[in-house]
Amino acid sequence: MRTAPRHSPTVTATRAATRRLSYAFIALLLFGFAVALSPTANANTPTIKLFPTTVVEDLKQTGNVARDMETGLQEVIGRLDQQQVLYQESKCDGAENDTGCQRLARQIGATYLEMLTIMEERLPDMEHTVNNTRLSLEKGLRSELGQKMTPWTLQETLIGGKAEQAASTSAPTLRGRSGMRLSERFKQYYQLVATSGAKGDQSLAVLASDIYLDMEETSLLIQRTRQEIARATLMEQLNQSFGIITPEMIEVVGGVKSILFGDAESTALVAGPPPASVEQAYRSPLEQ
């Protein structure tokens, strides 16, 4: 009869450690399979890379630049508002030849010039960061949604494998005037992107598209605004010698205010979904 071979304590300890390692490895493998087979993992694969770190940083940077511009302009615009009220209360409309009114108009013109100068100084930074964000997103959208996906896979990404689920799932920000501060909007974008890991690809695709189109529009607006500032500055410098408040001045200030600080009344109301039906568990074998 053969006896079991005896081993030294070191060998036994090594084997026990190896066995423990093997168990741990198998457990890890099983866990891996379980995770891979779980519905959550299925819903999230394949992950689309639409927000690299650079985009997140660019968004943060754009938000900071926008905040700086707002802070700089807030005081000037406040002053401009007060001066306009004073001008109206002094019944200067139609009394442009009055010396006092002319002085007031010149003061308003000077403040307006100050506003244009601040914008002129801050806009290049803004343009730079907005363009960076736009270009990074453009690359991601082209590659991930444009070249790697067919229309069907794009649709499946958007629906996120939850076609039969209630439509109350997280709806990303929709495009359009949000009625909020510019910096606040970028801050919100940044937060949405920075915390997007927990969301599905469907939200990311819509979010990336939304931000990209917004950046495209913003970039174009900044370009046009910069061109206009040069022209408006020249016009105002000429007007300074006559002490005139042009309707254009009032319009520009109004426009800047609504872009930078938002317009609370313009918040769009979104219609709610129609009342839900409960019985819809049926799945056809023909369903795709």
């Binding site: 082209r142 949604l145 958007l158 495009r175 695709a205 990209y212």
Partner: peptide, 17 residues
């Protein structure tokens, strides 16, 4: 609506490339 938005952005990005 989402497809409309995503296609607008994606096609614009494709055209830019």
């Amino acid at each position: 609506q989402e497809v409309e938005l995503v296609l607008e952005a994606t096609c614009s990005a494709c055209a830019a490339g």
